[in-house]
Computed example of a mutant assay.
Amino acid sequence: MNTIAATRGPFRVEAVEFANAAEDLLAVREQVFVVEQNVPVEEERDALDPRCAHVIARDRAGEPVGTGRLVPPPDESAPARIGRMAVLRDWRGAGVGDAMLHALLRLARGHGWSDIALNAQVSAQAFYARHGFVPVGERFMEAGIEHQALRRRIDRPQAIDDRDAAVAVTAAIIGQARHGLHVYSRELDPGLLDAPRVLEAMRALCTRGDGVQVQVLLQDAAAPQRALAPLLALAQRLPSAIAFREVADPVDHKYPSAYLANDDGGYYFRPLGHRLEGEAETGAAGRARQLAEHFRPVWERARPCTEYRALGL
Rank of each mutant, 00 (worst) to 15 (best):
A222T: 07
G266N: 01
D263F: 00
A243Q: 14
L238G: 06
A261K: 04
K254D: 12
P250D: 05
V251I: 12
P230F: 15
A221F: 02
A223N: 03
D252L: 09
L231M: 13
A223Q: 13
A227N: 10
A248F: 05
L232M: 05
L260H: 00
P250W: 01
R226P: 01
R270H: 10
A229Q: 13
K254L: 14
A241Y: 00
R245N: 00
A229E: 08
A221H: 06
P230R: 13
H274K: 13
D252M: 09
I242E: 12
L231S: 02
A227G: 09
D252A: 11
A243S: 15
F244A: 06
A227R: 14
A261S: 10
Y259P: 12
A223D: 05
S240R: 10
P256E: 09
R245S: 02
R270V: 06
A261L: 02
D220W: 03
A243R: 13
D252R: 04
A229H: 15
P250T: 02
G265N: 06
A241Q: 12
F269G: 01
D249H: 15
Y259E: 06
H274Y: 11
A233M: 07
R245L: 06
A258N: 08
V247I: 13
I242S: 06
Q219I: 01
A241N: 01
N262T: 07
K254M: 14
G273S: 11
A248V: 06
P239V: 05
E246D: 10
G273M: 12
Q236F: 01
F244K: 03
A241L: 04
L260D: 12
Y259F: 15
L231C: 05
R226Y: 02
A261R: 01
L272A: 07
Y267G: 09
I242N: 04
P271Q: 11
L228I: 11
Y267F: 14
A233F: 00
P239Q: 07
D263P: 10
Q225T: 12
A229G: 11
K254R: 15
Y259Q: 07
Y255G: 08
P239T: 08
H253A: 10
A223S: 10
P271A: 14
N262M: 02
F269K: 00
Y255H: 12
D263W: 03
Y268F: 15
A243T: 12
L232F: 06
A233Y: 03
L228R: 15
R270M: 13
F269T: 02
L272D: 11
P239K: 02
P239Y: 03
R226N: 06
I242F: 01
R226L: 11
D220A: 12
A221N: 03
A221W: 01
A261D: 03
P239R: 03
A223H: 07
Q236E: 13
A235G: 15
D263H: 03
H274R: 15
F244G: 04
P239A: 08
N262G: 05
S257Q: 09
L231K: 09
P250Y: 03
P230N: 09
A233P: 02
G266Y: 04
L232T: 01
P230K: 14
Y267D: 14
S240P: 01
D220K: 12
L234A: 06
Q225K: 05
G266K: 04
P239D: 09
A223L: 14
A258E: 10
R245G: 04
P224T: 10
R270T: 05
E246Q: 15
Y268D: 01
D263C: 06
R270W: 04
A248K: 13
A233V: 07
A261M: 04
V251A: 12
Y268R: 00
